[in-house]
Simulated assay, not measured.
Amino acid sequence: MVNLHPFQNRRIELDLTYEQVAKRSDCSASTVHRWLTGQSEMSIRDVVALAHALRISFPEVVENLKNSVEGRAIAAEYRREQRDRNGTIRTRSSADGRCCVDEYRKARASA
């Protein structure tokens, strides 16, 4: 479940209407309203699009999603990208984690 308060607070902080957020996230204003009032569940793609529209950083999105399965997968992928920038895999558990995330990404791409 996504904690909607950071998204709603950021929308208010930026002084954006639902229509403006919708235009930035390429969806309808009613959809944004349903997301931000909790009337509709958001997919991971929706969360990322909304975060992008509201200029919320990726680490903040990951923190927001950390209690969901998708959030843990995104966090693992983020850590993987950070690790790739800083060097190679150092342990077997890191390699296993990378394999798990790769499988998750393949499954999401084919869905």
Rank of each mutant, 00 (worst) to 15 (best):
M1R: 08
N3K: 14
N3W: 05
N3Y: 07
L4K: 10
F7G: 06
F7W: 07
F7Q: 10
Q8D: 13
N9F: 07
R10F: 03
R10I: 04
R11H: 07
L14C: 05
L14I: 03
D15Q: 14
L16P: 06
L16H: 10
T17W: 07
Y18H: 11
Q20I: 02
V21G: 06
A22N: 02
A22L: 05
A22G: 03
R24Y: 07
R24H: 08
R24D: 05
C27Q: 05
C27W: 02
S28V: 06
S28W: 02
A29I: 02
A29N: 01
T31M: 14
H33I: 03
R34E: 13
W35N: 00
W35K: 01
L36D: 03
T37Y: 00
G38P: 02
Q39P: 00
S40K: 13
I44V: 14
R45H: 11
V47F: 03
V48A: 08
V48L: 15
L50F: 04
A51T: 07
A51Q: 09
H52Q: 12
H52C: 08
H52R: 13
H52E: 14
H52M: 09
A53L: 07
A53M: 04
L54P: 06
R55M: 11
I56E: 01
I56A: 01
S57F: 05
S57K: 15
S57Q: 13
F58V: 14
P59C: 04
P59S: 06
E60F: 07
E60R: 13
V61E: 01
V62R: 04
V62Y: 03
E63L: 11
N64K: 01
L65E: 04
L65N: 04
S68I: 09
V69C: 04
E70V: 09
E70S: 12
E70I: 07
G71N: 02
G71E: 03
R72Y: 02
R72K: 15
A73M: 15
I74Q: 05
I74R: 06
I74V: 15
A76Y: 08
Y78P: 00
Y78N: 00
R80I: 09
E81G: 02
Q82M: 12
Q82V: 13
Q82L: 15
R83N: 03
G87E: 09
T88F: 09
T88E: 15
T88K: 11
I89W: 10
I89F: 13
T91G: 09
R92L: 13
R92Q: 12
S93H: 10
A95F: 11
A95C: 03
D96L: 15
D96P: 00
R98T: 10
R98W: 11
C100E: 13
C100P: 00
C100W: 12
V101H: 10
D102W: 03
D102P: 01
E103T: 09
E103L: 14
Y104A: 14
R105P: 00
R105A: 12
R105L: 15
A107H: 10
R108I: 15
A109E: 15
S110P: 00
S110Q: 12
S110G: 02
A111I: 09
